[in-house]
Design a protein around this nucleic acid. Structure first.
Lengths: 112, 112
DNA sequence: GTCAAGCGCAACTGAAAGGTTTCGCAAATT
DNA sequence: AATTTGCGAAACCTTTCAGTTGCGCTTGAC
């Protein structure tokens, strides 16, 4: 019900571990819980939070429920990061220009 | 003192706004607070959290303290995202292959 | 039909988070 | 020297969160 946030979802280390776990193949809550030192219910709660922000989707198979990562949603984080990537890339370019200039200067020195 | 996490730091929307604000130029707590509907003290608390995980660095100038974004630290998020970026890029390639095949098939149809 | 397995949901608990208010300190202003 | 300004830290309050326990529902096995 509460509007969940992707950033809030990935804030918890257990949830990031769950994401990593189901990234390649869908898993059931029990199977996920076996990988941690928590109960199935705790995992279930995390899965609910991940579902609410659409980072995860579930599919019922008999009495089992498989959860899989909605990788598209991860792009949202990537998009947010993009603005800062631009900054550090531009700084790197500036550094690169600086290094190139220094190199050229150094070469001129050697030519003398 | 408490070991802070970058992911926890960016979980709060106010902190993300602060990050965006000081990304291009360092600012004082008061100047930052003017942009939000909170007190300087609240901003100060956020800055402390951002400092603890080294996302932000401060520099004293007289009685003012300027906070600037440590953009290098943002790469940590990018690195975490990298593993998932690989996944969605590989899926895109697979889709691309599929589309190409469909196109070729379509061309063959037209040749008839 | 009976029983076990696999779940989600609700209630409870302790800890942490975000915000406000108050205080004290240091640097600039007068 | 006295005052103002800019700040962090501590105390406090309220809300949220992560985890446990207990319960009830549905599905599959016997």
């Amino acid at each position: 019900m509460t509007k969940r946030d992707v950033f809030q979802a990935i804030a918890d280390p257990t949830r990031r571990a769950i994401i990593a776990l189901i990234a390649l193949q869908a898993m059931t809550p029990n199977a996920i819980a076996e990988n941690f030192h928590t109960t199935r219910q705790a995992v279930s709660k995390h899965l609910r939070i991940l579902s609410e922000c659409e980072l995860v989707q579930s599919e019922q198979k008999g009495r089992e429920i498989y959860y899989r990562l909605e990788i598209e949603k991860m792009k949202e984080i990537d998009e947010w990061l993009e603005q800062y990537r631009k900054i550090w890339e531009s700084r790197f370019e500036q550094l690169d220009v600086l290094l190139t200039e220094l190199k050229e200067q150094d070469n001129k020195e050697k030519m003398k």
